[in-house]
């Protein structure tokens, strides 16, 4: 493995890892979110369109649009699940389809290209030898780590995932906390979408397909429990790196794309099996 290789892996996993931070919170809270991949697509289209429309080529508008999309999708997911008691699987599968459809509709299915350099720097540029996306990931990961470890809100996320009923009795506003995890997941997906768009230098409605699965697999491989209450930023990073190395390895060995997809399916199933066994031995 060369240094170049390593940078490749890190670049590749950065986008999944940022989504993974959101997945981490929803999983610790005892739910999961299937919509992030679609959020990437919608953000890609909209941020590309706004950067083209903005005559001053400033980043303000694209960033606002990005955060706005993340907040909106997160709020819809959170309200459906936390306040209207919908199962997360169905609710976020619904938004997954809806948001992807929206991205395709707005862009007419075509990519938006010719993006300004101030924007593409976010995805392709480096400060020193460190790529900008990696810097963004480090900042977001530290933020998430702090949130989980040092704030009441973070601890309450563990509480609702550990036992939602007991959390309510303990005075935790479980609905609000759950809503927060989905909004956070939405915003993380949106940020990932924006820098990925900058990296590929065009807005693509189909960008980010199945990223949510990469993020969830990464979490579970790292030891985040699907039943809630267990997980940390550290476990997410470890798990995502495993996935990155596997992907990179398969690329290097010229494994075909179809075969890679099969392998990813197998890995996801194995990861979930691992989680089942872990929680069984804990009993």
């Amino acid at each position: 493995m060369t240094a170049n290789n390593l940078i490749n892996i890190v670049r590749q996993v950065t986008f999944w890892a940022i989504i993974g931070l959101g997945a981490l919170l929803t999983l610790i809270g005892g739910d999961f979110d299937l919509s992030p991949g679609s959020v990437v697509g919608l953000v890609s289209v909209l941020s590309a369109m706004t950067i083209q429309a903005d005559l001053h080529n400033s980043l303000v508008l694209p960033i606002l649009v990005t955060i706005g999309v993340g907040l909106a999708v997160g709020l819809v997911n959170g309200i459906l699940i936390a306040y209207l008691n919908m199962p997360a699987f169905i609710a976020t599968l619904g938004t997954q389809l809806l948001v992807r459809g929206l991205a395709l509709y707005i862009s007419n299915g075509r990519p938006v290209s010719n993006l300004d350099e101030t924007f593409t720097f976010l995805g392709g540029g480096s400060i020193g030898i460190i790529p900008v996306p990696v810097i963004i990931l480090i900042i977001l990961a530290l933020l998430t780590w702090y949130l989980l470890k040092y704030t009441r809100l973070g601890r309450h996320i563990y509480a609702i995932g550990g036992n939602a009923q007991a959390a309510v009795v303990s005075g935790v506003n479980a609905r609000a906390v759950k809503l927060f995890t989905f909004v956070f997941a939405g915003v993380m997906a949106a940020i990932s979408g924006m820098i990925l768009t900058a990296r590929v230098a065009s807005g693509q409605p189909s960008l980010g397909e199945q990223f949510e699965m990469k993020a969830i697999s990464g979490c579970v491989i790292g030891g985040v429990s699907l039943k809630g209450g267990i997980g940390s930023v550290y476990s997410l990073i470890c798990g995502i790196l495993v996935i990155g190395v596997l992907n990179n390895g398969m690329d290097l060995m010229n494994v075909s794309g179809y075969m890679q997809q099969i392998a990813e399916g197998v890995i996801l199933i194995l990861a979930v099996l691992l989680d089942v066994f872990r929680s069984r031995t804990a009993k």
Partner: peptide, 13 residues
């Protein structure tokens, strides 16, 4: 079990 303990969490939590 149902409304008291957070079973997967630590004694401290």
């Amino acid at each position: 079990r149902t409304t008291g303990c957070f079973l997967p969490l630590s004694v401290r939590d």
